[in-house]
Design a binder for these strands. Structure first.
Length: 491
RNA sequence: CGGGGUGUAGCGUAGCCCGGUAUCGCGCCACAUUUGGGAUGUGGAGGUCGUAGGUUCGAAUCCUGCCACCCCGACCA
């Protein structure tokens, strides 16, 4: 069967790529490292946007938009920031093309060289803080709670559909506060928003934590993150929230006058999630038959497929389905009725499984006689016969059950892939044979962290927030440690 | 960016070593029979062989540059 995916067991990354393409989520474009997000993939991203945007607004944020281009000089104003991003910036140097004087084609017009090069934003802290300088004078102007939905460009060496592309879509929140306490509170608040979204909508369990100094965002005082575990035992950072201190305020001279009439630098946060979440979603739940979408995120929650031998039967089914569809939609359920006669039922079954539609309803002449339908759930592949009379209530419940089941399954899978290591040998043994998360003691130094990374490819994903205090010895150096940190090989 | 690989119809491929105008499967179109798990038969359409040059009477095939993608490293959300 030509439509089948490579199995996860056979080749996990091939499976991932097959799935992205065959489920019609995205494809490679003519531009290196850049993808085309196809309508079905974009519909899923739009659902993510809606859910996140609602949560941002509920927590007092507003949307705004800043330029794609950033003057080069802005980048050098915050030392560690430029260091972190300099190596992966796309630079605009000219503003005009002309016909090639030596023949056909078109060339850059060297006369149209920009006086100052423009950087295509890899992130917007610099342009935004340069702007905030003009917005903030008094404590009365604070806080500023702004989010931006945008595209950014990072010239990564190696790209992978959704997980790492040269251009990607994301949201970036940039807030300004009068006090450090308030900014820290904001940082944690947004981390919690992300965690809530990941667990309740995406059905992906995450571990909230703080990055080690080495893994911190360029320009941040503290970087918090949510970390998820994929089916192949690799970790994936699903979102970050940074406490930026006064670094950007100082770099861009953003001060406010406090109640005592004194000038103070403003405190900042930034936080973001990207289309990478699409990758997390796929690798958390999907199987060898295709995508598995949690109902709360699925653009199509229920697909109805008629089974008919002739036009007359189809007519009768159409009428029945119209009622069903209406009562389901009244419950807020998104329903697609696929009564095309150009594809056979079996083909459609496979197609919607590939696309991860949570519930499929099949209805044929037999059902019309009995007042029933066949209901199949995507997550477990189970089929059951339901009475049509109270179908909408049962489907509503079923969608919730599926949402829970998908989450629980992902959680079980993560637990199974979470281990503790007390010795260096044990640590290596777990990474090589099981993969997954490893809780282990670490002496707290960047040197040790880097050495471990070099030897095992495992990094400290985070220092979990709910970490118990536990005395122990660093698995690598044997030096004393006050708590375990979370290691894993990661995407 | 370093090492390895690939690029032939919408997709997957054979042919390349040893030069003579491209093979097969899926898909697509038409018709018929089908329709409760990816239908079958018959007929048909579809190709700048990634791209630009070079060698040659002749290039998918040999040579060079470039581009893209995949795998493994280094970098990262």
């Amino acid at each position: 069967m030509s439509e089948q995916l490579t199995s996860r067991k056979e080749n996990y990354s091939q499976w991932y790529q097959d799935l992205v393409m065959k489920a019609d989520l995205a494809e490679h474009s003519a531009v290196r490292g850049c993808m085309v997000i196809k309508p079905y993939g974009y519909a899923i991203w739009e659902k993510m946007q809606q859910e996140l945007d609602r949560r941002f607004k509920e927590t007092g944020h507003v949307n705004a938009y800043f330029p794609l281009f950033i003057p080069k000089s802005f980048f050098s104003k915050e030392a560690s920031h430029v260091e972190g991003f300099a190596k992966e910036c796309a630079v605009v140097t000219h503003y005009r093309l002309k016909n090639d004087p030596d023949g056909k084609g078109i060339v850059v017009d060297e006369d149209a060289k920009l006086e100052e090069e423009l950087i295509i934003r890899p992130t917007s802290e610099t342009i935004i803080w340069n702007t905030y300088r003009g917005w903030i004078e008094s404590y009365r102007d604070l806080p500023i709670l702004v989010n931006q939905w945008a595209n950014v460009v990072r010239w990564e060496m190696k790209t992978r559909l959704f997980l790492r592309t040269t251009e990607f879509l994301w949201q970036e929140g940039h807030t300004a506060h009068a006090t450090a306490e308030e900014a820290v509170e904001e940082t944690i608040k947004m981390l919690n928003v992300y965690a809530d979204f990941a667990e309740n909508i995406l059905a992906i369990p995450v571990i909230k934590g703080m990055k080690s100094p080495n893994e911190r965002f360029a320009g941040a005082i503290d970087t918090y993150c949510i970390e998820a575990m994929m089916q192949d035992g690799k970790a994936l950072q699903a979102g970050t929230s940074h406490f930026l201190g006064q670094n950007f305020a100082k770099a861009f001279d953003v001060k406010y006058t406090n109640r005592d009439g004194k000038q103070e630098f403003v405190w900042a946060t930034s936080w973001g999630v990207s289309t990478r979440l699409m990758g997390a979603l796929i690798m958390s739940h999907s199987d060898d038959d295709g995508l598995v979408l949690p109902p709360r995120l699925a653009p199509i929650q229920v697909v109805i497929i008629p089974i008919f031998k002739n036009e007359q039967q189809l007519q009768a089914i159409n009428e029945k389905v119209a009622e069903m569809k209406k009562s389901l939609e009244k419950k807020g359920i998104s329903v697609k009725y696929d009564n095309r006669d150009t594809y056979k039922p079996g083909w459609k079954f496979a197609e919607y499984e590939l696309k991860g539609v949570p519930v499929r309803i099949a209805i044929g002449p037999r059902d019309l006689e009995n007042g029933t339908v066949e209901v199949a759930r995507r997550d477990t592949k189970e089929k059951a016969i339901y009475q049509i009379t109270d179908l909408h209530i049962k489907i509503e419940n079923l969608l919730e059950q599926i949402q829970d089941n998908i989450y629980r399954k992902a959680l079980d899978s993560r637990e199974e892939k979470t281990n503790r290591a007390d010795t260096w040998d044990e640590f290596n043994e777990i990474l090589d044979n099981k993969g997954g998360f490893v809780y282990a003691h670490w002496d707290g130094t960047t040197e040790t962290e880097e050495k471990i990374k070099e030897l095992t490819k495992a990094t400290i994903r985070c220092i979990p927030l709910d970490n118990p205090v536990e005395e122990g010895e660093c698995i690598f150096t044997g030096k004393p440690s006050g708590q375990r940190v979370l290691f894993a090989r990661a995407y």
